[in-house]
């Protein structure tokens, strides 16, 4: 017997992500999904942001890692609440993992939720976690052709954080080539050139966060 079906294979995840999105709207939470390759500086960006903006926002982090809770401990050291998800080898977070992690938070006491995805530029892009925005991170110690090699992330992200710009004099990274490519793939992409080590440029990222958060505030 032949059965025509036509069903989105990821429909369960998409439906759940839709529920989470409604939940975030109801609580006025800005949810951001941070995606990059390993070592680009997702945790460093969070450490800085959580410290520098702690007087302005109530923030929390869901940490996705293959193994260990090292990143969650780094984040928790800033005083922010962090929940660790160990994917045990899984290459991405999905909406069900986010829902499970949310049980550890009081959503009425939260303004911004960061989801630090597993370091990977491919798989996390395919799984909607209910976030408002995907944030792509790229560091100048990587290839400047990453946007060309992994166009989908840069096409779908709302913002690109270019980290480690303090190292530019020592590496062959062509900043204008990387940003040129990414912004042509995605005209609405906001680009921030920062160094999480020195703090350079981070105010531009913070301004974007403030503006984005203002659009989600419940009255």
């Amino acid at each position: 017997m032949e059965i025509p079906v036509i069903r989105n294979i990821l429909e369960a995840n998409s439906n759940l992500a839709g529920d989470l999105r409604m939940l975030f709207i109801r609580h006025g939470i800005l949810a951001l999904n941070l995606i990059s390759s390993p070592g680009a500086g997702k945790t460093s960006l969070l450490e800085r942001t959580l410290k520098d903006l702690q007087a302005e926002f109530r923030m929390a982090v869901i940490e996705g890692d293959l193994q260990t809770d090292n990143d969650a401990r780094r984040v928790a050291a800033t005083g922010a609440k962090a929940v660790q998800i160990n994917t045990e080898g899984g290459c991405h977070l999905d909406a069900a993992m986010i829902r499970a992690a949310l049980a550890h938070f009081d959503l009425s006491e939260l303004d911004v939720l960061f989801i630090e995805n597993v370091g990977n530029l491919v798989c996390p892009v395919e799984f909607d976690c209910g976030e408002d925005d995907k944030i792509a991170l790229l560091s100048v110690t990587e290839g400047d052709d990453k946007p060309e090699k992994y166009p989908l992330l840069f096409n779908l992200a709302s913002a690109l954080v270019l980290n480690k710009v303090d190292l530019l004099p020592y590496v062959d990274f062509n900043l204008s080539q990387a940003t040129h490519f990414a912004t042509r793939l995605n005209r609405g992409l906001a680009v921030f050139e920062v160094s999480c080590r020195t703090g350079q440029g981070l105010h531009t990222w913070y301004d974007w966060l403030r503006a984005r958060r203002a659009t989600k505030k419940t009255t």
Binding site: M1, I3, V5, R7, I9, L10, E11, A12, N13, G90, C91, H92, D94, N120, V122, C123, E126, F127
Partner: peptide
Amino acid sequence: MHEISIVTSLLSLVEEELAKRQL
């Protein structure tokens, strides 16, 4: 690498469709 997750979701859809038709 995320194909395992995709196939897991796929198999649960297939299960549902077969159960609906008692196949």
